[in-house]
């Protein structure tokens, strides 16, 4: 049962990781990256690594997209 969950999560991670790379527009990419972080966190949870999953959730699904959006705001601000 757990193996099936992990295998499913692995496939999801691979697919969403590819999607992150192929999304060339940074604004869209920020959201795809957040989803990728979520997929990774659930994979880690399934692999019995709860604390890693928690930090991955905070870092990958919240902090990283947030920082990307902040830098985009800085970059797009008219001089």
């Amino acid at each position: 049962m757990r193996d099936a969950v992990i295998a499913l999560a692995l496939v999801w991670v691979a697919a969403s990781g590819t999607a992150v790379v192929l999304t060339r527009d940074p604004l869209h990419q920020a959201f795809v990256a957040g989803f990728f972080g979520l997929c990774l966190a659930s994979l880690y949870l399934a692999m019995q690594a709860a604390d890693v999953a928690l930090s991955q959730l905070v870092v990958g699904a919240v902090a990283l997209p947030f920082v990307i959006l902040l830098s985009l705001a800085k970059v797009r601000k008219p001089e």
């Binding site: 992150v20 790379v21 060339r24 940074p26 990419q29 990256a33 990958g60 830098s71």
Partner: peptide
């Protein structure tokens, strides 16, 4: 796959922000 895809994204990237996110994919 994640490592290769991340590196591919970095090499072909046309935007530094995109490149940094690809780096984080390779890192994961």
């Amino acid at each position: 796959w994640l490592f290769v895809v991340g590196l591919y994204g970095m090499v072909t990237s046309r935007n530094l922000i995109h490149l940094v996110v690809c780096l984080s994919v390779a890192q994961s």
